[in-house]
Design a protein around this nucleic acid. Sequence first.
DNA 1: CTAGGGTTAG
Length: 585
Amino acid sequence: MARVYMETMIQRCVTFSQIKQLQSHFLTAGHFQSSFLRSRLLDRCAVSPFGDLSFAVKIFRRIPKPFTNDWNAIIRGFAASSQPSLAFSWYRSMLRQSSSSSALCRVDALTCSFTLKACARALCSLATVQIHGQISSRGFLADALLCTTLLDAYSKNGDLVSAQKLFDEMSVRDVASWNALISGLVSGNRANEALDLYKRMEVEGIRRNEVTFVAALGACSHLGAIKEGEKIYSYFKNANLDHNVIVNNAAIDMYSKCGFVDKAFEVFDQITGKKSVVTWNTMIMGFAVHGEAHRAIEIFEELEKNGIKPDDVSYLAALTACRHAGLVDYGTSVFNNMARNGVEPNMKHYGCVVDLLGRAGKLREAYDIICSMSMILDPILWQSLLGASEIHKNVEMAEIASRKVMEMGVNNDGDFVLLSNVYAAQGRWKDVGRVRDDMETKQVKKIPGLSYIEAKGTIHKFYNSDKIHEQWREIYEKIDEIRFKIREDGYVAQTGLVLHDIGEEEKENALCYHSEKLAVAYGLMMIDSAEEESPVRVIKNLRICGDCHVVFKHISKIYNREIIVRDRVRFHRFKDGSCSCKDYW
DNA sequence: CTAGGGTTAG
């Protein structure tokens, strides 16, 4: 009777001092004879938000021979703490102790589960493999929950091969196991396979839940697969009448990443239940990357009016909006307000502000901000300043920034090209040559340009100048036709963008088969303009090239087609000869 | 002997 009462007392603890009181009461009343109550209290103390892990450890240290559940409570606490890797040290101590003690202390499925949680959070793949070994030797492989935790730990550690293998070998699989693998594939940049798996669930008649929809919508966001995305979302709407806010958030993101920010807003607007801060942030970010800064800011201000506290991502989204529209004053004030509102700027916020100032020509201010930072710098800051220096043709700043980038051991070809462009703009050909020699001697990393387009329900991939596509001849012919037509419209190739020391005609050729041009040409061929007003939508892994930007403006006018390009950082929507970015990018 | 473990959004 007393035990049940004590258990209820533990559950009712909502402050740390209450836990402490109970703990001393337990000690004096001798309740710690009961290992059950003891571990309940430990667990409460170690993991609840008002608990105190170090206090839990203190209690633990006074137990002469801790049982399984005492260990589990501590491991669980560390797994959820800011130092998840300590959970693994505790796990090892437990293994040592359990080998020399009674059956009351042995690693069980929960021990493994909590430790794996820590592996997933601390990104510890070696430990994950070790726990896997324990799970199989102890005969826990039939435990579906545990296997799903293991699967998740593998995929969070980037080991999708092991995750997939485990999934295939699992004797019992349920929705969560499928979901874990689908999510893993999405975050491992294998969204195509994630969608295939989702479709397999559909075919095999496996019940899907809201987590499945979120993961599958995430796959569509990555791929820009709007048709599949809409199918999934409408299926969800028909299946669940009570609207799940997380799925709606995923849908907002999906529409926005597929290029349809107005549809994203429709979803946002039609949410009848409670919006979460993520809902607002997703919408702000959507408008921001589409260059609709004023609508982004409107939502950002409305968020505060709705009594929601903006978090770090809210500020990041607002700053992103300013950055892409060149709203220096508003952006600066947002940045300065952050800390006052209890949100410390992180690397991404600094990255945004440096880009905002730099692009707007305030190179010195951008430089001063970087120098004022007390955290370890990310090379992206200097790369951003280098990019701004290139836009504004500032040799001194470009040299400073590129030296910093190189010092940090980054050797991307794009950074060399930027520096070279600044020299070229000043006619400093000797320096241009030196940069090019540098590129040859250093091992410069070149990330190949890659563009995707969805046509007739499948995704087509293009690399620069590739001839892999079965219709490559037709595509190249289409490009010739486009070049001919847009020249009549006044197009001149932006050959200044090509670094190599070659003739003008060769330079033009180097530009004209860029991956995004191949994709757009294919889109013009394949996507029927009569069929709904479907725009030609392309996704590129890098930033869009300046020449392609000019070409697409011409195409949008001459072919009377809307083109939407999702670049690494933002959207460009070409319509009637101009781009939504207003050439500010 | 009694509870506790898995998958989800920006």
